[in-house]
Design a protein around this nucleic acid. Structure first.
Lengths: 215, 215
DNA sequence: GATGGACGAACGATCGTTCGTTCGGTTAGT
DNA sequence: ACTAACCGAACGAACGATCGTTCGTCCATC
């Protein structure tokens, strides 16, 4: 009876995934449209036929590019986690050796990623449960590696006496979580551009860790 | 081909919703099972037949208690938001007049609610998008009221010079977000009981606001 | 002439929902 | 007090629609 015209995200425009997809044309277009649909209506809420129509293909043609609907989601999850992990890794490499600089770089990259690619963040974080375990495994493994980067940086700072969090893991979870909800409330604006949001999150993270910069 | 045995939550046990459901027997059992299913498999991922089987009824019988599948979710969303808002309100009332005490009380209540009723939190926050706007409206209105409680307490503290957040709304969002992801990673344990988690989150929130308690 | 992307039709399964009926308990009428 | 009327909960079967997927064929390109 009633359709569901709801869009889950604040930003309903279409940021493209990334350069990490291999430059095939149709396959990439499928992934782009699937990203929009899965983000807005959920994996189970979006149908193969809706996806095919969005791409401008017949439903059967999708199976020339992906063996199943689940594999489309799995590929999105893989791409998303890979891009995210790569962003964190690069941020860490170009940061200085100090824990403060490293955490700031990690949080900034984390926030930038989620603010720049909101639908990718949502699909990667909220729709992964719809995958069979063996298809979700690679993405989950990379997620583990990404969160380890933050925990390690924090632990290093604690060992050096620079950070004084009330508890390492809960604080790390709180810091990582800041980024995860961005797609639901944030929209870039002049008053709050993406880069400023990243700075604010970095500042909040350092405050949680007990660092006072400008007293 | 492949089923989806995934459970989205860390805690897959069955906390019951709340005393705010009216004490009807069957209707309540439907809501309880629907809560489990919607939380673990998503609204679109759970079927009326699965729900009926979980309750021990025929699918058609469900329609003696709810006019549609969507109405079951809408009722869960209503109950969840009501319980959450009530918890925040009571916490605020029994807190002192100081902004520090009020924010601590709000954050503690927020965290306790999400840690005690993880599936309710997930359904309320992640599955609402599946509802037609007119069914989601009451829940969204109450959510707005709840977040306003936090923002007001923070603003009062800022006006009094007690809080020095880098930016009010982003900081408020960060504080509220800490609680929202609890169901995905937290499980009560001896090392980290629920009450301790609530204290930690309150401490982190106050740190973000620029309050240093035990220097 | 082989390969692979695209098509249109169709498969069986499952979806949310409706229908007609039965049954047990409460209420109303005499 | 006995019966007739009623009503909501539950059932079993079935509805039409849509689901993910498969099949056979066509056609363009190498």
């Amino acid at each position: 009876m009633s359709t569901t015209p709801r869009s889950r995200l604040r930003a309903q425009k279409t940021p493209l995934p990334h350069a990490a997809v291999q430059q095939d044309g149709t396959r990439r277009r499928i992934l782009e449209e699937a990203l929009q649909l899965f983000a807005n209506e959920g994996f189970h809420g979006a149908s193969i036929r809706t996806l095919a129509k969005a791409v401008g293909l017949q439903p059967s043609t999708l199976y020339s590019h992906f063996p199943s609907k689940e594999h489309v989601l799995a590929e999105l999850a893989r791409v998303g986690h890979e891009a995210h992990h790569e962003a964190l890794r690069e941020a860490l490499l170009s940061a200085g050796p100090g824990p403060v600089e490293q955490v700031r770089a990690l949080v900034r990259a984390h926030t930038l990623q989620h603010a720049t690619h909101p639908q990718l963040a949502v699909v990667v974080n909220e729709e992964l449960y719809a995958l069979a375990p063996e298809l979700a495994a690679p993405a989950l493994a990379q997620r583990e590696k990404s969160s380890a980067l933050l925990v390690e940086a924090i632990s290093r700072g604690v060992a050096l006496g620079v950070f004084t969090p009330p508890e390492v893991l809960v604080t790390a979870a709180a810091i990582a979580t800041m980024g995860l909800r961005i797609p639901y409330w944030y929209e870039p604006s002049e008053a709050l551009p993406i880069d400023r949001l990243a700075d604010l999150h970095a500042e909040l993270a350092l405050r949680m860790l007990g660092v006072r910069l400008s007293p």
